[in-house]
Design a binder for these strands. Structure first.
Lengths: 191, 191
DNA sequence: CAAGTGATGTCTCAGTGTGCCATCACCGAG
DNA sequence: CTCGGTGATGGCACACTGAGACATCACTTG
């Protein structure tokens, strides 16, 4: 019936989210997702490499987007560049994600999905780090800054979902909090 | 032959690391690990819940250790407490891990294992956050600080492996770097 | 020496992920 | 219009993971 229908990937995403939300991730099989989308199990794996990925479609664009933002940023220091890039990519991301709350709830209910989500975050961190290096930062500094800003990014995203405020405001708030927290760290002493 | 021998769990860890290092994680089956350790595949799953966990045995102690360290710390502010706890737990951890380099290489070669490693790090972060809350920190602040210090912890561990310096020195260095990086963040403005 | 306990082995099964090949729809060349 | 090519799909088979159910063995305790 649905063979050759366009939008199969979209139907798979919808079907998966529906089923996961209703029965829980573990109690849903790939076969069920595929059948609800009108294809077979075998064809599902031609759209997504495994059962988890169906919830993270589109996430592969974020690393590229953040790398571009870094290379295009007018800021000078690595932390400022990275935060600037996070601001832009976050603002872009915010409009795109569908069924945010349901998706969040499903992921929160499954350790497997949380693992995958962390992988996506790690990919962003890596891309950010590489881009900073490409802009001339030292590898050590780039990695640290990337991780730091990745934390800000995630935290800001969560606050955005929870509060509904503008993403930029969330990010600024988080950045200011990080700054305050880091001020407590010892400047150089060792004991 | 090995039935009822003590130290089965150790043998499984050794066998797994041997096999993973030699043939790669994907090309080793649980059956092979179990047989090299002198038990059956079914019994393997009575020691470890899945194929990955055999490389992360003992990691479940870190969240407890860091929680205790937080509750016992003499510091006052949440960031200082967290960093203090990280220092103690790191120093404790450092002597314990076996075959660090091989283990690191194996994990680096498999996305699946990297996912699991991130899960372990996340567990530490969660425990740290909860402990900070228990000491009276606000949830938002605790989560942010926990993530921040978790980044410091990881970064310090990596530098420790790479350089061989004392863990505490690595952590102090990282903390100072974070402080410098965060100073660049805008204090409150939004555009 | 008999019962109990805990670790292990055996068997079975659902589900994942993949290779291989047949099939179907569509498209352009003749 | 027919033919072959191309790409997406279905069908089949397979190795592996992880788990339930039950039997078996060693060791302990009475």
């Amino acid at each position: 019936m649905a063979r050759w229908d366009p939008g199969t990937e979209d139907r798979l995403r919808q079907a998966a989210l529906d089923l996961f939300a209703e029965h829980g991730y573990d109690d849903v099989t790939v076969t069920q997702i595929a059948e609800r989308a009108g294809i077979t199990r075998r064809s599902y794996f031609r759209y997504f490499p495994d059962k988890r990925e169906v919830l993270f479609a589109g996430a592969e664009q974020l690393p590229l987007a953040i790398a571009e933002a870094v290379l295009a940023s007018a800021e000078k220091s690595a932390p400022a560049i990275a935060l600037d890039a996070a601001r832009q990519v976050g603002a872009l991301l915010v409009g795109r994600v569908d069924r945010t709350a349901e998706r969040r709830a499903v992921i929160a209910s499954s350790p497997e999905l949380q693992e995958r989500e962390r992988t996506k975050a790690a990919a962003i961190t890596t891309a950010l780090c590489d881009a900073l290096v490409e802009r001339g930062a030292a590898v050590d500094e780039a990695r640290l800054v990337a991780r730091l800003v990745a934390v800000c990014f995630q935290e800001a995203l969560e606050r955005w979902i929870d509060t509904g405020e503008a993403f930029e405001s969330c990010l600024d708030l988080v950045a200011a909090s990080v700054r305050s927290a880091a001020e407590v760290f010892p400047p150089q002493v060792s004991s």
